[in-house]
């Protein structure tokens, strides 16, 4: 027979384990947060001294003190532009099809499994595909266009999944109300489903782009140059037709590649440049995530079913 004292001892032992696990959980969380803090502080200590307007408006250079990230941030913005223009229409259209039109058949099932698998493909494999297909089969060159399309394919699953989730959240009664007034399926989608799900879709797009902005492996794989001391041709011009698409074919570099280039040099002065570029890149990523959180919050607040 177990006596009362035995039972009390058992309870005490289990309570101690319970408390010990709670402490362990907090320690694990603290490890994550402390690492993040150490990373940010380390980056800031090393990089803040190099941050200056000149750093943003200079080209990379052999002299670490003169080097800057002008070509890198311009390249990043142009590549992101192509990525967004390619991934958003394609991803949103695919999401609409899968959520609103697709019948339950083997083809739809394959497409769904396929998208889930694409989300797990290592990013460098997208780079290999782009190198073989875009660069050497379609002859798009190692250009901004190739880079933008590569990253667009990479974030396509994110955009599709975000679109599907925000469309799914719209009650069926909204669609039925539109049909009852004689709207066709597309009219119901265009005038009701899409406008109401814009917030969610936008959030997904921004999250996807913030992932693309930090990607460098696929772009290095397609052969992006690490030393670019010129800017691509400007997209807008003073003479007719005012827009210029030559920049699409231009060689480029982007922020993470510039950072990689500097961090892989032995001289310590370049490491400081890498830290400063890392700070700018982190600021870009954080700003995008901040916008995504803002959009998500506001689109939820505005609509009540």
């Amino acid at each position: 027979m177990t006596s009362t004292t035995d039972i009390k001892a058992i309870i005490r032992r289990h309570r101690t384990r319970d408390a010990a696990f709670a402490v362990l959980g907090m320690v694990c969380l603290l490890v994550c947060i402390a690492t993040l803090m150490a990373l940010l502080v380390d980056l800031a200590i090393d990089g803040v001294g190099r941050l200056s307007p000149g750093f943003l408006t200079s080209f990379p250079s052999r002299f670490p003190g003169k080097a800057g990230i002008l070509s890198a941030w311009v390249g990043t913005i142009l590549v992101m532009l192509v990525t967004a223009l390619a991934a958003v229409p394609l991803g949103v259209a695919a999401g609409i099809y899968l959520e609103e039109y697709a019948r339950k058949n083997w083809l739809t099932t394959i497409i769904e499994i396929n998208i889930a698998n694409l989300a797990g493909v290592p990013s460098i494999v997208y780079g290999l595909m782009a190198l073989g297909l875009f660069v050497y089969q379609f002859h798009l060159g190692q250009s901004i266009l190739t880079a933008g399309l590569t990253l667009a394919l990479l974030i396509l699953p994110i955009v599709i999944i975000a679109t599907r989730e925000s469309i799914r959240a719209i009650p069926g009664s909204i669609r039925e109300a539109a049909y009852a007034l004689g709207a066709t399926k597309w009219q119901a989608i265009k005038h009701h489903v899409l406008p109401y799900s814009t917030g969610g879709i936008l959030t997904g797009v921004i999250i996807g782009l913030s992932r693309a902005i930090g990607e460098s492996a696929p772009l290095i794989t397609i052969g992006a140059l690490t030393f670019i001391a010129f800017l691509p041709p400007a997209p807008v011009q003073r003479t007719f037709p005012f827009v210029n698409f030559d920049w699409l074919a231009s060689p480029f570099t982007v922020m993470p590649i510039q950072l990689f280039n500097w961090v892989s040099r032995p001289q310590q002065a370049f490491h400081l440049n890498a830290a400063a570029a890392g700070l700018v890149l982190m600021a870009m990523t954080l700003a995008m995530n901040g916008i995504a959180i803002y959009v998500r919050y506001h689109s939820r607040k505005r609509i009540k079913w």
Partner: peptide, 24 residues
């Protein structure tokens, strides 16, 4: 309080993690 930190951790570009690994 903690979840945004974890999300932030997953948003850090991988090159920055590389920098952190090599130099810290």
């Amino acid at each position: 309080v903690v979840k945004p930190f974890l999300e932030l951790l997953s948003a850090v570009p991988t090159v920055v993690f590389g920098y952190f690994a090599l130099l810290f």
